[in-house]
Design a protein around this nucleic acid. Structure first.
Lengths: 164, 164
DNA sequence: CTAAGATAATCGTTGAAACACATAATTCGC
DNA sequence: GCGAATTATGTGTTTCAACGATTATCTTAG
């Protein structure tokens, strides 16, 4: 198990200016590689990472909170990565028949987005390969390592989250 | 130092299916937030993360390796995140006057990309704010924590790198 | 010397993201 | 109630990324 350092991977001649820079690049590169594999999987089912996440959020709200759907803005806030254009994201899902929009009667400004049976079916089909890919990507890390990684990542986000 | 867990941030009701999934989402979210701030900074100078990286690579090759430039494909391979369309990336830099193309006389297929004085000037202007942003984002992690984070991220990439 | 194959780079097109602005509905001060 | 301000959402436009197919040059086998 030789450690292929990031510096070597990038053919970088000089060492990194500061450890924070190395960590940042490491983070970007790792996330890019891992996300890339997922995007490939999603694409095979005509989804993207964003649209998949929206479906997951809608299913979660339905299963765990018993809500038929969520306001658009609420969906946007729950996304893993921020996306300013929730409208078109949902548009794509609706065009594919995986989600639907209904106006809220209480507050006619808000649009409730909900998942359709077809959307649930697509998620069901993806559940297993997703789990397998997670396992393949990070399964070789021990439980202790994953816990530590999570701790460090959450700590890393703290100052960035400060100026939200 | 209250730990704002990812589950809470995402308003997720159920715990994560598996630790690998949580780590993946944590990774994606952290990278997204950190990259977002950098993209904002780059954008203020009419660059993107990709174009900035290309400039950094070109400067590095010049400074450390004494090369006037690099073949396009070599630049693409050194990028932090894989980008299949190096041509248009370089197009944008050339249009902005920050890089230039020259044909290699040895092998007339290869195009040597090199950074211009203007490109170097832009990088110089960015060096300090970049360092400051790295410090702001990850400076609150101890040196030991950064080292451990780097170790875990490199380990995480190993199986993904296997099927390149 | 020539044709076939390999390699480097480019181009065409599609689809998605980013950003600013516009629209509709609600709330609040008067 | 009436109109300004606020909130939730939608639209227009530009830019960027992904994928495939194509062109140009080099290499090599015959």
């Amino acid at each position: 198990m030789t450690p292929p350092s990031l510096q070597h991977e990038l053919k970088k001649q000089q060492p990194f200016d500061c450890p924070a820079e190395e960590a940042y690049l490491n983070l970007a590169r790792t996330a890019g590689e891992l996300c890339g594999e997922f995007n490939q999987l999603f694409k095979a089912h005509c989804l993207s990472e964003s649209t998949y996440n929206v479906l997951r959020i809608l299913r979660g709200a339905q299963k765990s909170e018993g809500l038929p759907g969520l306001p658009s803005l609420e969906v946007a806030e729950r996304l893993v990565t921020r996306v300013p254009d929730i409208t078109r994201l949902v548009d794509r899902l609706i065009k594919a028949g995986l989600a639907e929009r209904t106006r809220d009667d209480e507050d006619r400004r808000v649009v409730i987005v909900s998942i359709t049976p077809d959307g649930l079916a697509v998620l069901r089909k993806l559940d297993k390969p997703i789990r397998q890919l997670h396992e393949k990507q990070l399964g070789h890390l021990s439980c202790k390592e994953l816990t530590e990684l999570n701790r460090l990542l959450e700590k890393a986000r703290q100052p960035a989250a400060a100026d939200d």
